[in-house]
Computed example of a mutant assay.
Amino acid sequence: MKKKFSTKIFSFRNRVVIIILGFIIGTSSLLFTNNMARQLREKEQNEVKLWSFAMSKMGEMGPENQVLRQIINANTNIPFVITTGTLDVVTSHLIPERILTNPALLRQKCVEMAAINQYWEIKTWSNDTYYLFYGESNLLRTLVYFPYIQLAIICIFAMFGYITFRSSKQDEQNRVWIGLAKETAHQLGTPTSSLFGWIEYLRTQPIDQTAVEEMNKDVVRLTKVVDRFSKIGSTTSLSEGVINEIVGGSVLYFRTRVPRNVTINYNGLAMAQLKALVNEALFEWVIENLLKNALDALSGVGSIDVKLSSDNDWIYIDVKDTGKGMPKSNFKRIFEPGFTTKTRGWGLGLSLSKRIIEGYHNGRIFVLNSEIDQGTTIRIMLKKLYS
């Protein structure tokens, strides 16, 4: 026990350490890249400042000044536009022509660039004033957005890793449950066969045969349970079945085995036949699960109404009890493996029922309605079959 506990703690600590390291690495990368972007932005601003100074001195010192010419020609990657006070374009670089020729777009572009970087005034030797608006280089924009792209990629890989890990764990758990189910079926096979032998013996004895017949029904039911367990994990074959009769068989079986103060009502045997493609053994299992859950909810007193209905496409089986009900927050949770409100049980009945109905029969099962202290109605939907 100590070994298992320490293993769990170690595993939990490993996960915490990995999460913390991932957070530190991601945060460090973001801070480092943002710092580089800040330094590059300051460098570009200084370059533009120097460039604007060179432009202002060009007329005074002449275009043949090699130092000024070298400074001016050095700017090849920063988009800019120089305008007059009335937004007449003097010169530009890396600004699309459609913007330069459209006054409204040019004004909008200048406002956008001014929001990124403070514009510069350029005063020439002849006292003319021009305005320099400039943006960010492609390198700077890439550097600004790169850590967010990197973070998104890390999150995507983490999500896929989590999904893969979860799928592998679920596959492993499924194999364990399938193996457990088949082994259970195998172990129950021998005593079940032996019970049939004992029943045949009791039929030859001078005892009440009514009790023997009831025992025989229970053993037949046990045989069906064994058959269901043996089918878990195997290819499930569907065949045409009369839903009225399948549901009715389960209802009649339970009627003789419920407490005296519990009644089970069923309308299916008095209506026209409703047919669907089902695996009878597994579908009976679902109906029994719903009836057992309804009985547990009643706590020995109340009623269960099993109602069949249909429309042009679907058959509806509603199992309604007058039990304790449940909050709306549990409508979906009750179908999750391991979820239960009972003091006994593993919380697998409704999870298996959902898998059988939706995975094997392409139907639906859900809580139709439930109110605290008023009861619960669970609905099964099966595709209607016309013969």
Score class of each variant (00 low, 15 high):
203 R>G: 04
101 T>I: 13
74 A>N: 10
140 L>V: 05
8 K>W: 00
195 L>Y: 12
94 L>T: 00
225 V>A: 00
247 V>M: 02
115 A>K: 12
52 S>M: 01
218 D>M: 14
301 V>F: 10
205 Q>V: 12
96 P>D: 04
252 L>E: 15
355 R>I: 05
151 L>Q: 05
54 A>K: 02
364 R>H: 07
350 L>F: 15
250 S>K: 05
35 N>Q: 12
294 A>N: 03
113 M>P: 10
234 S>V: 00
319 V>S: 04
91 T>E: 15
354 K>L: 09
341 T>C: 11
134 Y>T: 03
345 G>A: 10
341 T>D: 14
139 L>Q: 11
38 R>T: 13
320 K>P: 01
32 F>H: 15
134 Y>P: 00
22 G>Q: 01
53 F>Y: 15
197 G>V: 07
151 L>E: 06
70 Q>W: 06
189 G>I: 02
258 V>P: 01
282 L>D: 03
270 A>Y: 03
6 S>H: 14
173 Q>L: 15
293 N>R: 07
298 L>R: 01
248 G>H: 04
137 S>C: 01
189 G>K: 05
295 L>Q: 07
1 M>W: 01
309 S>A: 13
338 G>L: 02
132 L>G: 01
342 K>R: 06
2 K>M: 11
364 R>K: 13
136 E>G: 03
29 S>M: 15
285 W>H: 05
196 F>G: 13
249 G>F: 11
279 N>M: 06
121 E>K: 12
193 S>Q: 12
20 I>R: 04
260 R>N: 11
278 V>L: 12
114 A>T: 08
57 K>H: 02
90 V>N: 05
119 Y>K: 00
335 F>S: 10
326 M>F: 10
197 G>A: 09
301 V>W: 06
237 S>R: 07
294 A>K: 01
346 W>S: 04
47 E>I: 01
200 E>T: 11
209 Q>I: 10
78 I>C: 05
111 V>L: 09
17 V>S: 09
240 E>N: 12
212 V>F: 00
9 I>C: 08
117 N>M: 08
39 Q>P: 00
228 R>S: 15
256 T>E: 02
57 K>W: 03
230 S>D: 14
235 T>P: 04
333 R>P: 07
37 A>S: 15
278 V>N: 02
306 V>W: 02
112 E>H: 08
293 N>G: 05
27 T>E: 06
291 L>Q: 10
121 E>F: 05
93 H>A: 04
368 L>C: 09
40 L>D: 11
40 L>H: 13
74 A>E: 06
8 K>N: 06
86 T>F: 00
276 A>F: 00
369 N>W: 09
196 F>E: 14
236 T>K: 13
176 V>I: 14
98 R>P: 00
299 S>V: 00
246 I>K: 00
363 G>A: 12
125 W>Q: 15
160 F>Q: 00
79 P>Y: 08
356 I>V: 14
203 R>A: 06
324 K>H: 04
127 N>I: 06
355 R>Q: 06
2 K>N: 11
290 L>S: 01
66 Q>I: 13
161 G>R: 05
101 T>H: 08
149 I>Y: 11
208 D>E: 04
254 F>V: 08
358 E>V: 15
352 L>S: 12
154 I>D: 10
283 F>M: 02
72 I>Q: 08
345 G>W: 12
173 Q>S: 09
336 E>K: 08
91 T>N: 11
359 G>E: 06
185 A>S: 15
303 S>H: 01
280 E>L: 07
5 F>E: 14
332 K>I: 02
363 G>C: 14
